[in-house]
Nucleic acid binder design. Structure first.
Length: 573
DNA sequence: GCCGTTTTCGGCCCGACTGTTTTCAGTCG
């Protein structure tokens, strides 16, 4: 069984939730939540670290006890401590606490009063009208609960791309290790780098197809084999994700890869172009009558209908075929183009590492500059800085700059946008900074009119350079707030404000469509990790994925610039 | 349960908002 980081994260979250409902020591609970976060955001594979005898206790928030528990999860796939906790209540409180408005106390109240142990129990009780009679609940709580349960049912279960990546890595190396396997590729929405992935489509080219299929269904992570023939097989992994495997011959490799990468809309449009030319395209190749004329590579297939290779990220039939025909495909930005990271936190507020450690980690990633951008005081939970504390922090950055040759640390802040659109720090201190990022962290529910006006007012502030995570959404947790994005983009152009693609895996905000709209509106974009630790810097890759899906080129992205050009861009007109 | 030290245990994340109340507990970021 291959345990991935997301598994460990899920176990620790469940433990924390159960302890929380049981009213355990809040700091103990926090220790589990911190550990879940640390592991979940780690760019390295923990199981891998263990097999290399690396010390887990060197990870922040992991002591000897949790290190032991992690080892147990990796070795057995379970945690005895969690099993015992679950046995005591026979309940899965974690899914209940995912409902907005339900925290540990309310879940406990529902459990005590109505014996509610899971979402099913909750839905039935809400429909019966029992909920509103429990102390602390009312009509509004019941309505919210029912609405949220309804929303959840409609949403098909998809996993975030970074979690899919954790499953893909070991699966691909498992397949590649089999004798006779020549090539393995994961196609589908994973290859198109969509922010969430529904299932995995794996294409394999090999000798001994039937043996390879048997080998595939014998993968240690397979929970259920749905079908298994000589050229294709479908399984469900322990993590509840379906994997479809296809064995294809070398002459069809490109055609199969194209077909299984999709999107469906892109494929339909491609086949239509072929039909107009008297050709037929399917997963086996490009055919004129019965004769295969192409199919070995994707480029060969596109070339057969006189098109250049189209990058997977933009295969959505949103104009890419027309662009290809007119030789106007974008030259998409890549991770190698990124020269710095303009949004991160340190120990000073809610980050894990020092300025120096972040700077050194950035050097090892080949960056020329970073900006340290702590929260302002309104974000109390993160120890947001007031003007005096920020002034001291600026001095600290100066000291680090004095001591390091290979990188420049810009002085920045992530200042809160207050409800009226004013900023959470005085102008004097903002004026001393290289980068001012403004961001909404509360009052997400304002009307579109008010929210839009609030954000635009902040962008118009003479010190503001960047608007962080513009819609405030958290993928599958919080809907984007209501704003008029077209207005915001227009205003961004007018006041030379840069819009952020926040690359944190739970945000990815702006999304792909907004990126595209930004490019069309002439808005500059910055891709930022919003790292809270040195490992968090690696989220940059997810932001680059998103930018590529949004057709962005190097020239659209501010942090592909060398430092002198970046400084010019940050100067307000 | 972690961390950092004072090496053995005390400190660790706080203020605003919501829905329920009728003065506040619980949730959220």
């Amino acid at each position: 069984m291959h345990v991935v980081n997301a598994d460990i994260e899920a176990v620790f979250t469940k433990v924390a939730d159960l302890l929380d409902v049981a009213g355990a020591n809040p700091f103990r609970i926090r220790a589990y939540r911190n550990a879940a976060l640390t592991i979940g955001r780690l760019s390295r594979d923990v199981a891998d670290m263990i097999s290399r005898n690396e010390h887990l206790t060197e990870l922040p928030g992991i002591g000897s006890d949790l290190a032991g528990k992690i080892r147990e999860i990796v070795e057995t796939g379970r945690l005895g401590f969690l099993d015992r906790l679950e046995k005591q209540s026979h309940a899965s409180f974690s899914e209940l606490m995912e409902i907005p408005g339900l925290g540990p106390r309310k879940v406990k109240a529902l459990y005590d009063a109505l014996d509610i142990r899971n979402l099913d129990d909750l839905e039935k009780a809400a429909e019966r009208g029992d909920i509103e009679h429990v102390a602390g609940f009312g009509r509004k709580s019941r309505d919210n609960i029912l609405k949220e349960i309804g929303r959840r049912k409609e949403r098909r279960k998809r996993i975030p791309w970074p979690v899919a990546m954790q499953l893909v890595r070991p699966l691909v190396s498992y397949l590649e290790a089999f004798d006779g396997v020549r090539r393995v590729a994961v196609a589908g929405s994973f290859r198109r780098c969509r922010e969430t992935v529904g299932d995995l489509d794996v294409v394999v080219n090999c000798r001994r197809g039937p043996d390879t299929i048997r080998y595939f269904t014998g993968y240690e992570d397979v929970a259920d084999v749905l079908s298994s023939g000589t050229t294709r097989s479908s399984v469900v992994l322990r993590s509840d994700i379906q994997v479809d495997l296809r064995v294809v011959p070398s002459v069809s490799w490109g055609a199969a890869l194209l077909y299984f990468t999709g999107s469906r809309e892109h494929n339909i449009a491609v086949r239509k172009i072929a039909m107009d030319r008297g050709l037929k395209i399917n997963e086996y190749g490009v055919f004129r009558d019965q004769k295969r004329i192409a199919g070995k590579s994707e480029s060969e297939v596109y070339s057969a209908i006189d098109l250049p290779f189209i990058p997977p990220e933009i295969r959505e039939n949103r104009g890419e075929l027309e662009a290809a025909k007119n030789h106007a495909l974008p030259d998409l930005v890549g991770l190698d183009d990124i020269r710095g990271d303009l949004h991160m936190h340190t120990r000073k507020t809610d980050g894990r590492n020092s300025i120096r450690e972040m700077a050194e980690a950035a050097v090892s990633r080949g960056y020329e500059y970073i900006a340290v951008t702590e929260h302002s005081r309104h974000v109390a939970i993160a120890h947001g800085l007031d003007a005096a504390a920020l002034a001291r922090h600026i001095e600290e950055i100066d000291r680090v700059n004095g001591a390091m040759q290979d990188i420049t640390v810009l002085k920045g802040v992530e200042v809160d946008i207050l409800e009226d659109g004013s900023l959470d720090l005085p102008d004097e201190i903002l004026g001393e900074l290289d980068v001012v990022i403004c961001a909404v962290h509360y009052q997400f529910g304002l009307s579109s009119r008010k929210q839009t006006r609030r954000i635009i007012r902040a962008m118009e502030h003479p010190c503001t350079n960047i608007l962080a995570h513009p819609t405030g959404r958290l993928i599958s947790r919080r809907e984007p707030c209501e704003v008029d994005m077209a207005e915001i983009m227009k205003s961004a152009v007018d006041c030379a404000c840069i819009l952020e693609i926040n690359a944190a895996p739970e945000r990815l905000d702006l999304d792909d469509r907004h990126c595209r709209a930004a490019r069309q509106a002439g808005v500059k974009v910055v891709i930022s990790s919003d790292a809270h630790s040195v490992d968090g810097l690696d989220s940059m890759a997810y932001g680059v994925n998103q930018a590529r899906r949004g057709w962005l080129e190097k020239g659209d992205v501010a942090n592909t610039l060398a430092l002198p050009s970046l400084f010019r861009l940050l100067e307000k007109p």
